[in-house]
Design a protein around this nucleic acid. Structure first.
Lengths: 196, 196
DNA sequence: TTATCCATGTAAGAAGTTACATGATTGA
DNA sequence: TCAATCATGTAACTTCTTACATGGATAA
């Protein structure tokens, strides 16, 4: 499965231009697939050449023609064929988690600010997903949006409850006598000196 | 961040050969990063050339020499430098979720078998992560393993509770008068005929 | 006056995968 | 006898991103 298939899928929900496809990918899809213009436009050209989509030109003043693509019957057939293949395993690439893995090499306050930024990102993304959920969605769309909400909510809560593991307070708490109070975040702990 | 940085990180945990680096990526890293031999070996060559790692040859009978790489002080410095950069946003690519998004185009029994396979995968992966948790891990490793467990547990539960949204039983339940009994999975519903 | 939205497209390059090449050992 | 494990490496290929090219309208 590639961007080409993804375009077929988006077009199965209704005609759209390349620009609009990109925008729609930022809706319910955003948390599990993305694509840039540089991959969408060539994919649409190819689909047109394969006659899997048709194209209507809408003239616009002072702008390039808007090209509205529509799925053809052959395109719908091809989409079903692609969707019938065994899905490959999910692939997640998270630089955040890599950095957390080696958080002991970084100043605690830097790690804390990365964690804060991550939590903010989760809250903003969850807001957007909740907004989406309020729209009229078909059951499949509700499924994938709900999936995103479930996953992000769990991740947010986990990080809130376990950030001490990467912020060096676990060791400090042990040394101090093992209280379970969360350490105040603003406390200017000395950074781990780079030991290399 | 790329495979090169990832190799530096793995080597920060102790010397290893290219083969062993690949194996270690299948441990606590597996749920948020992966790399093939075809990217690891060239990365190590480059790191050696840059003097960020050193290499000891262990002769082996009837096998290519095992090349054990060790992080140099310059390598550790470079790792810290890379980790200090702003992490790019997570990138998830899930063909499973794309297929679920268009589940109405596929036979219900096919969707059900994909969902079952997914649930099995979650249970197996969670077992492995729980095994990892039982090992001696540093706090950062406990953080990322726990993160994986939290995320996958939530996703597993969500799918168990909401699979009806993609298995076509929502509509059937409405037509039948809104019972909440799960419909029998084996029921041979006709696929949506391609309406093109 | 600066940035963002709209709107399409190309070209160069990065980054990684897959397949291939080699080959003994071990377990099913 | 067949597959997997151990062990390294190259080359061709795929796929996608980034930067560029164009340019008016609109909002801060």
């Amino acid at each position: 499965m590639d961007v080409r298939t993804l375009c077929l899928g988006i077009l199965a929900l209704g005609p759209a231009s390349g620009y609009e496809i990109k925008k729609r990918l930022e809706g319910p899809f955003r948390h599990f697939y993305d694509a840039s213009f540089g991959s969408i436009y060539p994919a649409l050209s190819r689909l047109l050449h394969e006659r899997l989509v048709s194209c209507a030109h809408e003239a616009q003043s002072n702008r390039p023609d808007k090209k509205v693509y529509t799925l053809t019957p052959a395109g719908r057939f091809e989409l079903v064929r692609e969707l019938s293949a065994e899905p490959t395993p999910d692939r997640l690439r998270s630089e955040f988690l890599v950095v957390m893995m080696f958080a002991d090499l970084l100043p605690t306050r830097h790690v804390a600010s990365l964690v804060d930024a991550r939590l903010t990102w989760y809250r903003e993304t969850l807001d957007k997903l909740h907004d989406l959920q309020a729209c009229e969605l078909n059951p499949q769309q509700r499924f994938v949006v709900g999936y995103g909400i479930a996953a992000y909510t769990a991740e947010l809560q986990y990080i809130e409850e376990n950030r001490h593991l990467v912020e060096g307070t676990a060791l400090l708490a042990q040394l101090a006598g093992g209280t379970e109070r969360p350490a105040p975040l603003a406390e200017p702990l000395p950074a781990n000196p780079a030991q290399g």
